[in-house]
């Protein structure tokens, strides 16, 4: 059969699209999204502020010392002056009953809240990857066991349970080398992370399931790769997109989870602070001193909102088909 056409080399050079890796494509798309970029900048600022909290405090001249002299003796220990004692010395006012500067408390509190949130997200995503991969790739009874377990966990009154659990564990003095506030934080990280993992495991599992049937996995197996090789070399790289999206979308949830638990008093407790702890303390006095509730609340909401916007943007960047206005 005579060849009807030449395999013209020229056809190859005038190729369709400049191919880039999905990661770079996503990054390019993300950069075009102004809202996400703004959110990202805000998040970066918050992170910087919490990392450099001591430095900032020193620069602004605030500290976490108790300034009892600023509290009103007649008004049940509430701050003198308007808006919870706002002044040049104390830009956001002071805490009732202890007189500590609110700005300093917020800065140090952000550290705690964000540290716990990132830790819990890491735990949740890691567990999700491990169990999701395991269940999705191997299938069979492993999958059944893991899926059933996540089902049970999701049917559980998780919040109620964590409150009870944390109340119980709050009495522990030391585990290993951790004590006091450090222990408290570690416990929170593990509890929140653990109870979030069914959700992440399910997501990972469905991702793995859809990838597992793709040709490149079959090809790898035909070539004689061991299961572990396939998992690490083939599947995992293709999962980085979903993992990044999952992580960025989990952070707001964990922040609010810690805040909720601390609010109810089973999370971080004084003298340590976190956003939730401040709000919890404020819940007793906010009718009289709304500033004490407002500032930590706004700070938390702004940060969570920024994380949500950023997470949405990242998700849209990786999958432009996903619905966005």
């Amino acid at each position: 059969m005579t060849a009807v056409t030449d395999p013209v080399a020229a056809a190859g050079t005038r190729s369709a699209s400049r191919t880039r890796s999905p990661g770079r494509l996503a990054l390019a798309r993300l950069r075009r999204d102004r809202v996400s970029v703004a959110a990202g900048v805000f998040v970066a600022l918050v992170l910087l502020a919490s990392v450099f909290a001591p430095l900032i405090c020193r620069v602004l001249g605030v500290d976490t010392e108790r300034h009892i002299e600023l509290l009103s003796l007649t008004n049940l220990g509430f701050p003198e002056g308007r808006f919870g004692g706002m002044s040049w010395d104390h830009p956001l006012g002071i805490e009732p009953k202890t007189g500590r500067d609110l700005l300093a408390l917020l800065l140090y509190g952000s550290r705690t809240s964000l540290l716990i949130a990132f830790g819990a997200t890491a735990v949740s995503v890691l567990l999700g990857i491990v169990f999701g991969l395991w269940a999705g790739y191997f299938g069979g009874w492993v999958d059944t066991v893991i899926s059933r377990s996540t089902e049970v966990l999701m049917a559980f009154p998780v919040f109620l349970f964590s409150i009870a659990l944390l109340a119980v564990l709050g009495n522990l003095d030391r585990v290993w080398f951790l004590t006091g506030n450090g222990l408290r934080m570690a416990i929170l990280i593990f509890v929140i992370g653990f109870f979030s993992f069914p959700y992440t495991a399910r997501l990972m599992r469905s991702q793995v399931l859809s990838l597992r049937t793709r040709e490149f996995v079959a090809a790898a197996r035909v070539m004689g790769s061991t299961n572990r090789r396939i998992l690490v070399r083939e599947l995992l790289p293709n999962l980085t997109g979903p993992i990044i999206v999952l992580t960025s979308l989990s952070i707001p949830t964990t922040v609010l989870a810690e805040a909720g638990l601390s609010f109810l008093g089973v999370g971080i407790s004084p003298p340590a602070t976190s956003w939730g702890q401040l709000l919890g303390a404020a819940s007793r006095t906010f009718v009289v001193d709304p500033a004490y509730m407002l500032f930590p609340g706004l700070c938390m909401v702004a940060t969570v909102l920024a994380f949500n916007l950023l997470g949405d943007g990242i998700r849209d960047a990786f999958d432009p088909k996903s619905t966005k206005s």
Binding site: V4, D6, P7, A16
Partner: peptide, 15 residues
């Protein structure tokens, strides 16, 4: 003998 496809790819509809 062998199947005889048309060599090459359709062009990009953008380009």
């Amino acid at each position: 003998g062998d199947l005889a496809p048309i060599a090459g790819q359709p062009p990009s509809l953008i380009d």
